[in-house]
Nucleic acid binder design. Structure first.
Lengths: 251, 251
DNA sequence: CGGACCGTTGAATGGTTTCAAAGGTCGTGG
DNA sequence: CCACGACCTTTGAAACCATTCAACGGTCCG
């Protein structure tokens, strides 16, 4: 029997005010009265690493946000080829208002806690409280931008560039969370298996493994174990990713 | 000197009630008073095939919709590799409220007529009239779905499947516009050059050419000239595209 | 006629995949 | 405690698909 986490213990009593994604999720713009309404209808669900949150085509009666952990959106072809089409991080939204069935497979990559709302009440709230709809629009536009950057990666980058890009993306996000010091090197864990990275990048897991080894051999990254990465020179990594070095400023 | 089109002649007098995209564009949900407000601040712009609408990074003081014609959103890497990240058809929206600079190159593929709004007034209207924001959210969610299907194509499909998919997409859209008869074959023009298709599909133009020839040789499509396509058996085409044959029903 | 585009086709190259084998870690059960 | 299987990862060799480089045909237009 797995030991219950702090959050699992407090599933029903979790207070929105203490929520780690309070200022980034779909509720970010809501004010106290609106929060109270949401708080009444919300509920938490947890998923273990590897567990399926929902299958593509299944009926979906809820929408929600990732509170902690990481999940993936994937599409699968009949013959089994798979492509990840979304990487869901804390505060990211799952589900589409107005849609009854899931369009993608959603899988918990790490242990995941979700904050859910039943779909119908949520849709009704969206009509009445424009702040939710505004925030959802903003988040959807951000996701669309991310998807488009991803399309460039999938369509035009080499395997080496794809790996470098992925490490840069994860590293950058991690740095944001940690409010890192001025130091130029960056240390973090890759939350994905080689196979999940392959699904993300449109590669095979063997190619992923080979290219990670190559980047390590060339000193672009340092590895401790399989998952723990140090980036000694982030600009070098961005060069390897084929990204405009100054791209980060505009985004 | 190019002969002015009917629409160019009527740029200033175009009436929203007669607009071909009235019921699909960002204004689709607006009612008469809101339409009147929009009608006051709108203006038309035309672009010739091949002309650039805006360059990535340029200041963008307007947003708008494609009224007629086709445009592309592309990203370019420093060394010149290009990837199309959006194909803009009539009623599709260009620009992001709240963003001052263009994130992508926008290019007219055919001659294009756009219905534009200055960004600031449009943003203010969006706050006041939720119907515009609602419709924009819906359109953005649709685009996100399209982008994700595209990601599967870019990451996992073979060159042959990519070409078949593109032809299926264009054919299906064309069929919708034409309200086609019950007949099973489908005839239409490819609005893209081989190079534009390559940018769309993450291929080289030579590979595009070869795979189109192969599909023709195998009887999946018939070609008259370079651009005019007939699909004798749409299900066969979908098979070649690697799509779930019944996928269309759920989408 | 010459040049600019667009498109097709051939041959060689090469990057990624495929197939195969093996090492490492972890948890479970004998 | 160790053996075992499940899972994740690495690495090698061969095969293959798409790219690259190159040449050429067709059309349009100045």
């Amino acid at each position: 029997m797995p030991k219950p986490s702090i959050i699992e213990d407090n599933l029903s009593s979790q207070d929105c005010a203490d929520c780690p994604i309070r200022h980034r999720a779909v509720c970010a713009r809501c004010e106290s009265e609106e929060m109270a309404l949401l708080e009444e209808v919300k509920y938490y669900r947890t998923f273990q690493a590897g567990q399926t949150v929902i299958w593509s085509g299944d009926r979906m009666d809820f929408v929600g946000s990732v509170v902690t952990g990481i999940a993936s959106l994937t599409q699968t072809m009949e013959d089994g080829r798979r492509q990840m089409v979304g990487l869901l991080l804390p505060s990211d939204f799952i589900g589409r208002p107005g849609r009854q069935t899931a369009a993608y497979d959603v899988t918990a990559i790490s242990d995941v806690v979700m904050c859910c709302f039943r779909r119908k009440p949520f849709e009704e709230m969206m009509v009445r409280t424009p702040r939710i709809a505004q925030r959802l629009l903003e988040m959807t536009l951000d996701e669309l931008d991310a998807a488009r950057e991803w399309m460039l990666l999938l369509g035009r980058k080499t395997a080496r560039e794809k790996i470098a890009s992925l490490i840069a993306i994860i590293g950058r996000r991690d740095a944001e969370l940690k409010l890192r010091s001025a130091g130029n090197d960056l240390t973090f864990d890759l939350p994905l298996t080689r196979e999940a990275m392959a699904d993300y990048l449109g590669l095979t897991l063997e190619t992923v493994s080979r290219q990670i080894s190559a980047l390590k051999r060339d000193g672009v990254i340092l590895l401790e174990g399989k998952r723990h990465v140090t980036v000694p020179d982030f600009d070098r990594l961005l060069e390897e990713a084929g990204d405009d070095t100054d791209g980060g400023l505009l985004v």
